[in-house]
Design a protein around this nucleic acid. Structure first.
Lengths: 240, 240
DNA sequence: AGAGAATTGTCACGAAGTGTAACCGGGGCG
DNA sequence: CGCCCCGGTTACACTTCGTGACAATTCTCT
């Protein structure tokens, strides 16, 4: 069981990425490197992170832009890195949602200190209270209301879900078209690791399909990838 | 069974190209040589690669320019080779998107070590079913929906595909009228190399034909080129 | 707190998907 | 004309999945 804070290090320079990752790990944190915005998104989708260290200057999607997106969602704190030591950049960074800022070149110990400071400020157990309350999510011909645990058809037919069916469905809905294996699903849904030959998720999927698929023997919404896992094959949009 | 990482080695010097290719293969990787940017593009189109080793100095399109294009697409990591050991080049290389850099002349073992390091970092948890999700593709008298894995006739008749039939069909649909041999098909479909006497693809083709050909004993859509491979003989258009 | 109901995890068995081997048949070439 | 190479297809083995049954756990209501 590993409940150390998990840090995602996003920087396009290998040396910085790797040395930061190693340094954080040596100091008792978990750290995962990502090369750019694309890789970052992939890792965010399949893992749980407590903080993102983000370089401002990156090819592809720029750090500032990434930061704006992330902080709009607002669920993971951000520490920005930049080569420019100018005050204006600091202001801009903090304005668009970063939680702190550090100019390159920096002392790794200072980085660590700031990471810990942010974690102290932000570690509150509201992590997934937010994801399961007061949301309405539409996908395929269904609308899900997370408060009442009720799925409503476009014809008005209603199905209610049990707690764990709801969690599993939300995990899938938050990652449409992404292939998730049983380990990841169990981790994201229940926060625990799968034991070998664990068929829990299969069963949950089976029960969920019985409720949401038109023909549960020919699933179209939740598809199976043999040897891979499961995938929500539908477009999803959040209502408010 | 071979799902070793697949490396594309791009260098205009035959000796380097070949010795690197051989060395990587001796050490348990798959490696394919390419002489220049043109050949590289061809191989990328008909194979699935996990990393590209790219020489900076090349006739035709220059390595730096190639690298910029590739990293803009951003789906295959790059290790740059250069004869110049200057720091500026290193920075430039990394800035435009290379994942690592190695100066010639280099020790093959160091190259291997760096390749493995990049692969460790970039092997994502489980990527999008990317090309397999949310698409509708029309060809001949069929329409394929990749989400539901369903082929629909113009009369409305429907056929279900299995996961691997779908993958194979999409590989073909993305390369209409191009002859693909068994190695290429297996690489593109499953990311692995064919073992000698591997009849996997023949079987998949047979199963696919049974589902999509009007007369499976006289295939019109997927034609065989004796000694060559298979070819999708139909026009394809993507719907949205 | 305890009884009963609902939910969830585990086990087991059958079904389906996929790779491998073997056999068959056709066409080209000597 | 017969051999041989190559591809088509069938059969089968092995793995992975789906799901009913039941046990364990949690929830609810008194």
């Amino acid at each position: 069981m590993n409940d150390q804070p998990h840090i995602l290090v996003v920087d396009d320079h290998r040396e910085i990425r790797d040395s930061v990752t190693r340094y954080l790990e040596k100091n008792g944190l978990r750290a995962t490197p990502a090369r750019d915005a694309v890789e970052m998104d992939a890792k965010l989708a399949t893992g749980q992170f407590d903080l993102i260290v983000l370089d401002v200057m990156m090819p592809g999607e720029d750090g500032l832009s990434v930061c704006r997106h992330l902080s709009a969602k607002g669920d993971v704190p951000i520490l920005m890195l930049t080569a420019l030591g100018e005050e204006t950049d600091r202001i801009v960074g903090l304005e668009i949602g970063a939680d702190d800022y550090l100019a390159k070149p920096f002392n790794p110990r200072e980085l660590l200190a700031r990471i810990k400071a942010i974690l102290r400020r932000t570690t509150l157990p509201e992590t997934y209270a937010g994801t399961l309350s007061g949301r309405r999510i539409a996908f395929a011909h269904w609308t899900l209301d997370t408060d009442s645990r009720l799925l409503t058809d476009e014809d008005g037919a209603q199905v209610d879900l049990t707690g764990s069916e709801l969690k599993l469905l939300v995990v899938l809905l938050e990652r449409p078209r992404l292939v998730l294996n049983r380990d990841q699903l169990l981790d994201l849904k229940a926060g625990r690791a799968a034991s070998p030959f664990d068929r829990t998720i299969d069963n949950q999927i089976s029960r969920l399909r019985r409720k949401i698929e038109a023909d549960p023997s020919r699933p179209r919404l939740i598809t199976t990838l043999r040897g891979g896992g499961y995938c929500l094959a539908a477009d999803v949009r959040e209502l408010d």
